[in-house]
């Protein structure tokens, strides 16, 4: 069995992991493959991500190198017997549990104490009262967008009223409906105010969708029969892409919308130029 005891495999493991790590770092740095540019107030997510990335990266390199080194170093030798180490004494058992405890503690610390719990609570907690409201409704394979209009209230919706003319089934007998601004599926743009909290109310007409704005670190499933919610503050002016992150059928891969962040005044001006629902539906 001498061919099974060569150093060849250990060398190959070492070579593969060292070269692989260097090549990965080089390729990633050269292409700038990283999180998309942050454009919202969710910088805590990035902070936790980077922390875990560093810890996991170090652990990855250390353990893969240790593994490769062991494979290289301890390749069988006819003259040497393996070191008998059953791991039954108390000291050995302690040694076997310790690394696990350490790993978990490091992870817990990075996840929870860097503000993981608090940002999770914030995202799912009550948004500020003066927040800018937008409703986004998914359907195969486009998004409808609705703004509440000057009264700041969305009109009632009833799925029974949904028709080609009234894609969201807005109940026009409700006073709050008349000034709503509605963009039927695929025809709207998400205009959001800069530096102002935005509440996204998320609905779906048919199957599960999931609006995902990578630059904002925002993702929340649109569940039929429910209204889900998320809120954030856009921090950079510009145009962003909104994608669907939950498989919704054959057009899933291009169920997109445009997100435009502008100062509040411009958003208000743009909104005032749109035709309210009361003047469209007949």
């Amino acid at each position: 069995m001498s061919q099974n005891q060569s150093k060849f495999h250990g060398l190959l493991f070492l070579f593969f992991f060292i070269l692989g790590s260097i090549a990965s770092v080089w390729v990633v740095l050269r292409n700038g493959w990283w999180l998309p540019e942050l454009a919202s107030d969710r910088e805590t997510i990035d902070k936790i991500f980077v922390t875990i990335f560093i810890i996991a990266g170090i652990l990855f390199v250390l353990s893969e190198l240790a593994l490769s080194y062991f494979i290289f170093k301890y390749a069988g030798d006819a003259r040497r017997k393996a070191f008998y180490l059953p791991g039954t004494t108390k000291k050995e058992i302690l040694w076997s549990i310790l690394p696990g405890v350490l790993v978990v503690m490091i992870l817990e610390i990075s996840a929870e104490f860097l503000g993981g719990a608090s940002i999770w609570g914030k995202i799912h907690g009550e948004p500020p009262k003066d927040a800018f409201l937008v409703e986004i409704t998914g359907e195969q394979f486009a998004w409808s967008i609705r703004y509440p209009g000057p009264d700041g209230k969305f009109g009632k919706v009833d799925p029974k009223l949904i028709s080609y003319d009234n894609p969201l089934g807005i109940d026009m007998s409700d006073e709050a409906s008349k000034d709503d601004i509605v963009f039927p599926a695929g025809e709207g743009v998400l205009y959001l105010p800069l530096n102002h909290p935005v509440v996204l109310l998320i609905r779906s007409k048919d199957v599960i969708h999931s609006p995902f704005i990578p630059n904002f670190r925002v993702k929340q499933d649109a569940v039929p029969g429910m209204v889900t919610r998320t809120w954030f503050v856009p921090k950079k002016e510009g145009e962003y892409e909104l994608a669907c992150a939950e498989l919704c059928g054959l057009g899933h891969y291009r169920m997109k919308s445009l997100v435009v962040v502008k100062p509040m005044e411009e958003v208000q001006e743009w909104l005032s130029q749109q035709t309210p629902a009361g003047d469209i539906y007949w």
Binding site: A142, A185, G251
Partner: peptide, 8 residues
């Protein structure tokens, strides 16, 4: 067309 819901 579900991708372009205005199409009918």
């Amino acid at each position: 067309c579900d991708v372009h819901p205005w199409m009918s």
